[in-house]
Amino acid sequence: MKGRVTLATVASSAGVSVATVSKVLNGRSDVSRETRARVQEVLQKHGYVGRRPEPVTRATVELFYQGVLNSYSVEVIQGVIEAGSAAGVDVVVSSHPHSKHARGNSRAAGWIREMIAADRRAVIGITSDLTDADLAALSRARVPLVVVDPVDIPQPDVTSVGSTNFAGGMAATQHLLGLGHRRIAYLGGPPTSGCNQARVSGFRNAMDAAGVPVPHEYVWLREFLYDDGLAGGAALLDLPDRPSAIFAGSDEVALGAMEAARARGLRVPEDLSVVGFDDTQVARLASPPLTTVKQPLREMGAVALRTALQLAAGEKVDSHHVELATTLIIRESATAPSRLFSVAAS
């Protein structure tokens, strides 16, 4: 048969009404089994293609991450995507929110125009360093923003999600102190990072409470990546009085420090104890498995998504900053210091 097959064509071939064919196509139950089978046979025979259904419009949320994707960010992104799926919301992931070549208000305005044109319900940023112009543009456009672990200390009216970094820093340090270590170094992320500042503060608080001084060179700050742990670990382990333990601000940094130790013929944990932060997959795959402070990273992403939707719906949130609890996970990368360090500390 030439030309487009219509409902009338199918109805005529099957010996039924157009209404009956429509009922079969829509899955209605008020059609006999025999009639349904006959209509379906004719539909298949003629290769009937109905009208394209109207597209289903789903709410979308923009999720952006600035910097190199790592084990930490992948866990948070997974949490956002899973929560979005459960809420019936599409999550669009981008590496950064706007062109790095633009500057100031024009950059922010261009980004917001893109958000409005794409009908984004809200924006979620991971460790983002948004400018005042970005924040002002989002506010003017009334596009809700939720930031996970902001690089800078968030403004009071910027909603953010993090973890109990101070408590986690204390727990990691107290664990090493409890094992008998006194030469404990901190190897962490950017000095301006809010979560890093909290972890350093927890580290120093635990050391002060134990009456153990921290030499200036025992605190080494750069980024939260493997290469930074490798460089920082090398710097710490090449000191004349090298540490017996390193508390790393992320699991990737911890693995870098472990590799720096291996390259110097040092064993973990016999010659150097290492504790990380995050409890990403790399912590479980490390050799030896890494003792670390667990952040509920996927739950942080899920909370960020749910909070963003609350704000988009005009609902009030209980707090502009949510902190989820951290937990120390003890594995095999930390043990009591060797006799050499025990004698030196006595």
Rank of each mutant, 00 (worst) to 15 (best):
S73F: 07
D227T: 15
V212Q: 13
L285T: 12
Y226G: 05
Q44R: 15
V91Y: 06
A172T: 03
V147M: 13
M115C: 14
R33Q: 14
G67C: 11
G178K: 03
F64S: 07
V42K: 15
T326W: 00
V74D: 01
G232W: 08
V68G: 04
A14Y: 03
G110P: 03
V151A: 06
D241N: 15
V161Q: 04
L63S: 04
D149M: 12
R284Y: 01
F247Q: 12
R4G: 09
E323Y: 01
R107M: 07
V146K: 10
A231G: 08
Q281C: 01
R267W: 00
G188K: 09
T292A: 04
D129E: 07
V80H: 05
S106L: 09
H320K: 10
V91A: 13
A336R: 12
F224N: 05
A286N: 01
L328F: 01
L309R: 08
L340Y: 00
Q310D: 11
V200A: 09
T291L: 07
A261S: 12
F224I: 09
M1V: 15
E41G: 11
R113E: 13
L7E: 01
G27H: 07
T127I: 05
A234Y: 03
V200L: 15
R306C: 01
V92K: 05
G276F: 04
V68A: 10
A109M: 04
V158L: 03
A118T: 05
V18D: 03
P156D: 05
V10A: 06
V143T: 15
S94D: 06
T292H: 06
E34Q: 15
T291G: 04
D30G: 10
D157Y: 06
R262P: 04
E332N: 11
M300P: 03
E114A: 12
D157F: 07
H96K: 13
G50A: 09
